[in-house]
Amino acid sequence: MMQGRAWRFGDHINTDLIIPGRYLDDPSPSNLAAHAMEDADPTFPRQVRQGDVIVAGRNFGCGSSREQAPVALKSAGVSAVVAGSFARIFYRNCINVGLPVIICPEAGSMVRTWDVIAIDMSRGEVALASGERLSFAPLPGFLLAILEEGGLVPYTRARLKGR
C-alpha cells in the first residue's frame, strides 16, 4: 500500500521532459533527481516530496529508452506513476528499477494536484481523496514479484544464486 500527494500531468509526457538528454552524461541518481520533470514543470525538482505520485494521461514515457527517466522519478521520491496508458519501454523500465506503474485511465480526470491518493498494487485499487475507489488490472504475478524484490537487479541476483 502506498500513499502520497498527486502531481497531475497531461498526455504524451515524453522521456525528454522527464529527464532531458543534456543531463545524461552524469547518471548519478542525485543529478537525475535534481532535473526530474523540469522541462514539464520547473517547480517539480524543488517541490517533490518522498512518496508523491504522478498521475498523467495517455502515453506516459513515450520517446527514448533511457532508463534514467524512471530512475530520475524514483530518486526524486516518486512512489508510483498512474497513467491512462504507458509507452512500452518506459513501462518495462519502471518495473525493472522498482517503480510501480498503474494503468488507470479514469484517474486522470478525477485527481487534482496535491490530492492525497492511496494505491494497493496487489488488489488493484486506487483510493481517491474523495473516498472513491478506482480499480485497475493488477500486474501479472512475475512482474509484481520483480517489483516486490525492489527491481530486476535484486530479482536476477536471487535467480542466479538459485541456479
Partner: peptide, 13 residues
C-alpha cells in the same frame, strides 16, 4: 528497444 537493467539480465541469461 529495451532498458539498460533488463539488458543486463539478457547479458546474464
Amino acid at each position: 528497444g529495451i532498458g539498460a537493467t533488463e539488458m543486463a539480465s539478457v547479458w546474464a541469461t
